[in-house]
């Protein structure tokens, strides 16, 4: 048994309300709920502008998580679920959002969300989620032109990083930064399987490697795998990364270094892209329902 019960994989759950916005004045209140494999996100928009959101861990029951994430997002706003005109569900658990009127695939939502967060110049979106990795090409309207999803193995995903954070006992939010504290990049570990990658990392630690160096090898393996995926759909500027792993500088810096393209800096937490995208789809669907489009 571990003598230290700390959970290094645990990332910060939070909610936020945009100040100076009042839902009472809004014509359209729409929401998106993105139930991912690891994290669940809810976003509420007033006339297409982001108002309130939450990001939390997905629990064992998707329905409950959906309700929790939504209630947490609208907490303190005085808004009730009944006040929301249209809700769209997305992500792995999208069929389990009980109050959603429709579901849209997370691929379309991430493209649309990235378009909102980073602007209309975005052409390539890389979403690194909890248990999969998606490469998406989109047009100036945020419409998907091509996509590729790799979900057969957890290598190259957020959950893999969580497991690794626990292994080297470094908090997940510092993992990427510390992995950059190496003079030279080591050889990457194996990148076809997260279990093999972890096993190889354990072997390297036993050989006496510093944990930062092992971490660098692990991050590099992930980046190599992701780049393989990206080159399959082709990469065009502007390039952005969404999903929780977008917050890991160890991945972002290495992507930039090995691709030669700098991903755009996000104005908002990139983990929200799917939820924002689905809230925007909700707005479009509500307008359609009202006969406005």
């Amino acid at each position: 048994m571990s003598d230290n019960p700390e959970e290094f994989w645990r990332w910060r759950e939070y909610r936020h309300t945009t100040p100076d916005m009042d839902w009472h004045n809004a014509k359209m209140i729409t929401a998106g709920v993105d139930i991912g494999s690891v994290g669940s996100k809810a976003a509420v928009m007033l006339d297409g502008e982001l108002y309130a959101y939450s990001a939390m861990r997905t629990g064992g029951v998707s329905e409950e998580t959906a309700i929790k994430a939504m209630n947490w997002a609208i907490e303190e706003t005085g808004l009730k679920t009944e006040n929301i005109n249209y809700v769209v569900g997305t992500g792995y658990g999208r069929v389990n959002v009980p109050f959603a009127k429709r579901t849209i695939t997370e691929i379309a939502c991430h493209a649309r969300g990235a378009h909102y967060i980073y602007g209309p110049t975005v052409r390539t979106v890389l979403d690194i989620g909890g248990q999969d990795c998606k490469a998406i090409r989109c047009d100036e309207k945020g419409k998907v032109m091509s996509f590729l999803m790799n979900d057969k193995c957890a290598a190259g995903t957020g959950r893999g990083l969580e497991v690794f954070a626990d292994l080297i006992r470094t908090p997940i939010e510092e993992l990427g930064k510390t992995s950059l504290n190496v003079e030279n990049e080591p050889q990457p570990v194996s990148n076809t399987c997260v279990i093999f990658a972890k096993a190889e990392s354990v072997a390297l630690l036993r050989q006496g490697w510093q944990k930062e160096k092992v971490s660098a090898a692990y991050h590099l393996a992930m980046v190599n795998r992701i780049i393989d995926l990206l080159t399959k759909v082709g990469i065009e500027k502007d390039f952005v990364v969404t999903g929780g792993v977008a917050k890991n500088p160890g991945i972002i810096t290495r992507l930039e270094r090995n691709l030669g393209i700098k991903p755009l800096e996000p104005k908002l937490d990139p983990i929200l892209a799917g939820a924002i995208g689905s809230a925007l789809f909700a707005k479009a669907l509500y307008e359609k329902e009202l006969g406005l489009r």
Partner: peptide
């Protein structure tokens, strides 16, 4: 849209 289904 070019939808890629499958894996590596």
């Amino acid at each position: 849209m070019k939808a890629h289904y499958g894996y590596k």
